[in-house]
Computed example of a mutant assay.
Amino acid sequence: MYLKTLQLRQFRNYQDQKVEFNAAKAILVGNNAQGKSNLLEAVELLATLRSHRMARDRDLIQDGAEFAQINASLERDVGISDLTLTLRRNGRRSVAINGEIVRRQMDFLGVLNAVQFSSLDLELVRGSPEVRRNWLDTLLIQLEPVYAHILHQYNQVLRQRNAFLKKNQESALALNTQNTQLALWDAQLATTGTRVIRRRDRAIQRLAPIAAAWHASISGSTEILEIKYSPNIPLEQQQPEQVQQAFLNKIQQRAVAELYRGTTLVGPHRDEVELTINQTPARQYGSQGQQRTLVLALKLAELQLIEEVVKEPPLLLLDDVLAELDPYRQNQLLDAIQDRFQTLITTTHLSSFDAQWLNSSQILFVKAGEISIN
């Protein structure tokens, strides 16, 4: 797939800017806080309808404006698609493909696929379990767009169940675990949560060997990477009804604690993705360089898995990440990319790139939300 054009209106610090991409690699050069990352964020939103910055829509819209719009023209094997995402200050979004409004947003997902790699991704190793869950969910949305709907359903039930527990927290002793209304929320949580768990498990099973192979390649086979999905619900059995029953059993076990604390303690919102190198937790292991090798292996594995599933190479968005990698890892990444993936790269200077890369790349200069060729 190839992103031909991108137009940003009233988005972040862009008033009205159109970019035409004419090479497989585009390098966006500029000082910090000029808008380089904002452009990559726009592409990420078209791919996943999510931002790794976790911003609210109103934060993406220019001050004084009621809406922001992202337009793109994308060329794929099946033809050219014009994509439009409109963000409104009231939080209501709309999406369109070839000028036709798409009623269900999940039908917009999967048209454009992209993998984002930024310095923030080092938190995949060092950060909280929530960071790894968000990373896995974002990947899953691209592998299986219906997952966005499944995750939304689960989060909706979780919010409503939490509100019920909070409301009844003070009268927890009077509210026994057989309460009919609570039992309804339990059943819905187990049903929706099981769908999330099974898809997360399946995705990690596919990703783990690919990431391990990349990691072995980058580390010279001196280190063994293992990625393991560690769900909050026991997953000895794979059948949906068995997972669902295990879910309900654990809810029963934690019922008193949930009522006492007024929040849901059971479910995929408490899952973990365990990353180990040579059987040692990665966050405790070795140098920052080794942690960067792990994240690089994860990102290369994402690219490969998405390409295998969608049958076309996704876009690669590199947000100021070369500065975080030493020359050896930079070369590993750049060699893996070649011209196989259309790549948008942000940088504050061009010295990280050799002459061959610079000669085969489109170089765009970004200053205060305006893009120029020289």
Rank of each mutant, 00 (worst) to 15 (best):
L8E: 01
F11Q: 07
K18R: 15
K18W: 02
F21I: 06
F21T: 11
G35W: 06
N38A: 15
A42N: 02
A42T: 05
V43D: 04
T48S: 14
L49E: 05
R50Y: 09
H52E: 10
D57S: 12
Q62I: 08
G64M: 03
F67N: 09
A68F: 08
I70W: 01
V78Y: 11
L83M: 14
V95R: 02
V95C: 09
G99K: 12
G99E: 08
V102Q: 13
R104K: 15
G110C: 09
L122P: 00
E123R: 02
V125N: 00
P129E: 02
L136N: 03
L140V: 07
Q142A: 08
V146R: 08
H149P: 01
H152D: 10
V157N: 03
V157W: 04
L158M: 11
A163K: 12
E170T: 13
A172N: 00
A174R: 08
T177R: 11
Q188C: 02
T191D: 14
R195W: 01
I197G: 06
R198T: 13
R199E: 07
A203L: 04
Q205P: 04
A208Y: 04
P209M: 08
G220Y: 09
T222N: 12
E226P: 00
K228V: 10
P231N: 08
Q238M: 09
Q239V: 00
V243E: 05
Q244R: 15
Q245Y: 04
F247W: 11
L248W: 06
I251W: 01
A257D: 14
T263I: 07
L265F: 09
V266P: 00
D271I: 08
D271H: 04
E272Q: 14
V273R: 06
T280V: 15
Y285T: 03
G286I: 03
S287Y: 11
Q290T: 10
R292M: 07
T293Y: 00
Q304R: 13
L305Q: 07
K311E: 13
D319F: 00
D320S: 11
L325R: 04
L344F: 15
F353L: 07
Q356H: 14
W357E: 07
L358F: 11
L364M: 13
V366G: 03
A368C: 03
